[in-house]
Amino acid sequence: MPMGLSNYRASLTRFQSFIALLILCIALSLLSNKFLTIENGWNVLRQISVNVCISVGMTLVVLTAGIDLSVGSILAFSGAVAAGLLKNGIPWPAHDLFIGFTLLGTIVAALIVGAALGFFNGWMITRFKVPPFVATLAMLTIARGLTMLSTKGYPISSLGSKFDFIGSGWLLGIPVLVWISAVTVILAVVLVRKTPLGRYIYAIGGNEQAARLSGIHINRVKIIVYTIGGILAAVGGIMVTSRLDSAQPNAGTNYELDSIAAVVIGGTSLSGGRGTIMGTVLGAIIIGVLNNGLVLLDVSPFWQQVIKGLVILLSVIVDKMNSQEA
C-alpha cells in the first residue's frame, strides 16, 4: 500500500538528515573544541527555536503542496502588535478612553493577528484560487507594510522584565524559548500522526483530486493549515520580540527562506504529500549548527553564504537519489 511505502520513505529521509547532522557535529567538534559544550548546545537550541516554530507551520503548508512566503512579515507584524500593545496600549482620545493590555492579553492579541493574516492567506488561496506562492508573496509585503505603519518605522523597545522572561528566562533548567518550540513540535507531531486533519493534509498533498473525491473538505483543511502557519509565525514574533526586548520593524526579513531551507533539508517534498515534522526539526538544527559552527571557526561571512547554499543543494540531491531508489 502507498501508505506503508510513504512511511518507509519518510523514515528513510528522517534517518538521512540525522546522519547528516551527526557527521556535521563530529566534524565541528574535531575542528573546534568549543563546539561540543553544554552551553553551546543551549545556544544553538535557543537560536533555532524561532525557526523551528515557523518551520513546523511551513511543513504543514508544504505537505499540502503549498508554500508560505509571508511568515517573516507576519512574525514582524505580530511582534510589533505585541510590543505596541504592551508598551502603549490603545488610546482612544475621542472617547477619552485608554485600553491597557496585560502580558497575557498582549500575547493573545498577537496570536489573533497571526491567525487572522494566516486565515486571509488560506481564504485567498481557496476562495479565489490564487496560487499559494502569489497569495503569500502578497501577504509578505502587506504584513511588512502593516508593520511599518504600526511602528512608523522605528523599533519599540524596553518592554519590561515580565515579557523578557519568554526570551531570556529558564524553566526547570531549560530555556523558555526551547520549551515553546518543543511544545510546538510535540503538538504538531500529534496533529500529523494522530488526527484526521493530519491524514487529510498528507492526502491533499499526495493527490488533491483523489482527496476531494474521497470526501475531504479540501478548502477547509487548507484554510486551517495556513491559519496554523500564521499563528506559529506570531509565536515566533513573540519569541523574537521578547528575546531582543524590542520589536524591530525589519524583524523576520528572509525568515521564510531559512524556514523553507529547514523543511527541504528535513526531507519534505515541495510537491507535497511526503515529509515529517521531525525531519524539519532536524533540518532546522542542521542550519542552526551550521550557522553556529561557521562562526566558531571564524569562517568569512562571504563563504558562509556559499556553504549554506551548497548544504541545501546537497541535501536535496541526496533526498532525490534516495526517493528514486525506494
Partner: peptide
C-alpha cells in the same frame, strides 16, 4: 545591521 542576528552571532563568538 540586524539586532537579532548580532545577538546570535555574538552568542556563538563567545563560545569560541
Amino acid at each position: 545591521f540586524d539586532r537579532n542576528k548580532a545577538m546570535e552571532v555574538m552568542e556563538s563568538i563567545l563560545q569560541a
